[in-house]
């Protein structure tokens, strides 16, 4: 699904990401962890095209996506959520999902001819089902900025889903959540996988990462220092050193 090959991104002298190899196969949930400033968010920004590559290659479904602008990558099937929530605050919950429906299939439905043939109704049904999936059906006409924190996170996930992605990048979706909300989030992520999504999960909260991923890659100073199943990673000496030596708080699940 997604292949990063010797991917680097330097900011001046800082090697935010340095020669990273990473593979995410179809239907997998891969975790990307590491101390603060280890290059996780930069990696997400490279995949979505917010940053350009210094060197290396990113392939999505076999195609080199480095030259594609962000909105094209999105239409190709990559979606993400943000660590710091970025909803369209002045739009309602419903409208947040509506403006996100930019997949080629949805564009075709909105084409001149299908508009007159009732193609729009499918678009509505999808919003309804996304609202139900996120438990936001009763809030559909609320302004996004008026939602509670947990609801905003759910809406962000729903908005990412509205773009009909094949690959979903979740950037610290559990930040600021309590244990119960994390449990619900885990259920939701697993349900998404059942729907055929591939997920790259960037996360500090070990409770979530360990419980939901098939494989974990660990970054430190922009380089991959370990990769394996959750059980293997928990035992890995280099990982323990990076976390405890670099930023002890991160290992405790803080941000």
């Amino acid at each position: 699904m997604l292949e990063l090959e010797r991917v680097s991104r330097h900011f001046g002298g800082v090697r935010a990401v340095d020669g990273l190899d990473l593979k995410v196969r179809d239907g997998e949930i891969v975790g990307l962890i590491g101390p603060n400033g280890s290059g996780k968010s930069t990696t997400v920004n490279l995949v979505t095209g917010l940053f350009s590559l210094t060197s290396g290659q990113i392939r999505f479904r076999g195609q080199d996506i480095a030259p594609l602008p962000t909105h094209m990558r999105l239409q190709g099937g990559i979606a993400r959520t943000f660590q710091n929530i970025r909803l369209f605050g002045q739009l309602t919950v419903w409208q947040n999902l509506w403006v996100a429906q930019n997949s080629p299939a949805d564009r075709a439905k909105r084409g001149f001819f299908s508009r007159w043939l009732g193609g729009q109704s499918g678009v509505r049904d999808e919003i309804v089902s996304l609202l139900e999936f996120s438990g936001l059906a009763h809030k559909q006409d609320e302004l996004a900025s008026n939602l509670a924190f947990g609801e905003q996170r759910r809406l962000e996930l729903a908005r990412a889903m509205a773009t009909k992605p094949k690959l979903l990048l979740l950037d610290e979706p559990a930040a600021g959540m309590n244990s119960e909300e994390i449990g619900q989030l885990r259920e939701r992520i697993l349900k998404l996988r059942e729907r055929g999504l591939t997920i790259l999960l960037v996360e500090h909260v070990m409770e979530l990462v360990m419980g939901v991923t098939d494989r974990i890659a660990v970054l430190n100073f922009g380089q991959k220092i370990a990769e394996g199943t959750p059980a293997e990673i928990q035992k890995d000496a280099a990982v323990r050193k990076a976390y405890l030596g670099g930023d002890a708080a991160a290992a405790e699940g803080g941000s």
Binding site: H71, L74, A79, L87, F88, G89, Q90, Q95, V99, N102
Partner: peptide
């Protein structure tokens, strides 16, 4: 209109707007 809502989405959150596939 969907166009108008997209415009307001861009005003509000340009980065997120790009990331939900709005053609800026």
């Amino acid at each position: 209109s969907r166009f108008g809502l997209s415009v307001r989405a861009v005003i509000d959150q340009p980065v997120a707007a790009r990331l939900v596939g709005i053609n800026l």
